[in-house]
Write a protein that binds this DNA or RNA. Structure first.
Lengths: 239, 239
DNA sequence: GAAAAATCTTAAAAATTTCTGAAGAAGTAG
DNA sequence: CTACTTCTTCAGAAATTTTTAAGATTTTTC
């Protein structure tokens, strides 16, 4: 594991995981050029080690690696945290597997890749996640009238009373309240929360969770003041 | 299926659907050359799968394909989303040409095609849709005297008062107000909002919706100050 | 001014979307 | 293994929207 510059708070930090040092170095140059911090790891185990001790904003994971490969690593990381993961795969055939497995990566790039394309994807993911409120800078407590969400404690209170949220409920609630006022289509909610392609029945799944959330945050769930439906479009948290 | 995936804000993403990999690859090269992202699918079913999970800005669809052909795929896609579709077909299938455009495709190219022509059509469609306000870029609030449309919140206010719009009403209103001053024929409104071929009775449908919109934004719906009729031509939003 | 054409209006039928409760599946902790 | 929680699916109900239909009104044309 090699550290490149200290942990800067202003700048975002990318973890590059590949057993080939040359590739890591090449990627680093481009990321640094964009003002991003870079930390290296040469396999999945080391990557998880790094994640324990550092604040990482995005992970670039090679699939073919010794010890713990990129796919398994993605699984393990996903269980623990909500962080953008970009997979690197050697050949286009591998991408079939990635897609079929639906392992929860946010994006992937085939090797050999165009550095500019990789950078574009990195920036795109970083932008996307910033609005999600998963980063340090956005770890502030979110308040909306009686509702308070504390991302660090992973706790929600309604009028001061703590309320228990299941994992899925929490993720949906977090997405909506950190983007209060914005409408999300059901498909977008499903993709951003589940990180899986949207099925025909997924909208019903989302609807059931929305109902559960309403039971917990609304005085009258049938006439919600917060979590409103926008007919034919999706849901939004009323500001 | 091979993917070059991701939500690009800078770059737009084109889905190329053809069962012939060589053709897909050839098209990809030209599209990439224009700075466009490309995703492949080898038939209509796969295309729809991809659309569920990705942000796509334009679709190039071959007509002759296994499983779900281009025409059926166009129907299904049109039902769900507002996205430019360009159909590809062999020269002999000229009859399909008319059919293709009527079912909701935006343009049509015969094989073998001149790549430059295809690119020109792709860019033309992207330009057209960008100005239509269907993409992320058009997230700005639109104001017109007392009327304010906020696309992010999907909310309309009249003199500060929020007004509820149904999906169809909203789409028509959005089209007219984002192009205030321009006249739209009823047929054009129908095609751009419904994405379906215009029927005999469609003008009545549009008229009913126009009435509903007027009730919501006009002080005196019988003497509209905003949504005006241009006799024998269509409707326009008065600037 | 009368006929033709285009637009407007209202209400009810049809279609679509969302909501809900319950049951079973899947996953976790003891 | 059992008890417990959480997630997904289903089917029907409820709510909302869209379309249709049948005139009524307005504008244009001759």
């Amino acid at each position: 594991m090699r550290l490149t510059r200290g942990d800067f708070v202003e700048s975002q930090c990318v973890l590059v995981v590949d057993d080939d040092k040359e590739i890591r170095d090449a990627i680093e140059i481009y990321l640094r050029n964009e003002g991003l911090q870079v930390i290296h790891a040469h396999d999945g185990l080391e990557a998880i080690e790094v994640l324990r001790g550092h604040t990482i904003h995005l992970i670039i994971l090679d699939i073919m690696m010794p010890n713990l490969d990129g796919i398994k690593a993605t699984f393990q990381i996903r269980k623990k945290m909500n962080i953008p993961i970009i997979l690197l795969s050697a050949k286009s055939e591998d991408t079939d597997k990635i897609l079929g497995l639906q392992i929860g990566a946010d994006d992937y790039v085939t090797k050999p890749f165009n550095p500019l394309e990789l950078i574009a994807r990195v920036k795109s993911q970083l932008r996307r996640y910033v609005t999600l409120g998963t980063f340090e800078g956005n770890d502030k407590v979110v308040k909306l009238r009686e509702l308070v969400l504390d991302p660090v404690a992973r706790e929600v209170t309604v009028s001061g009373e703590p309320v228990h949220f299941t994992p899925m409920e929490y993720k949906i609630f977090e997405l909506l309240i950190t983007n209060a006022g914005r409408v999300f289509s059901i498909q977008e909610i499903y993709e951003r929360v589940w990180k899986e392609p949207y099925y025909d029945t997924s909208d019903n799944t989302v609807a059931v969770h929305v109902r559960k959330i309403r039971e917990k945050i609304e005085i009258d769930p049938k006439n919600p003041r917060y979590l409103k439906v926008v007919w034919g479009v999706g849901y939004k948290m009323e500001k």
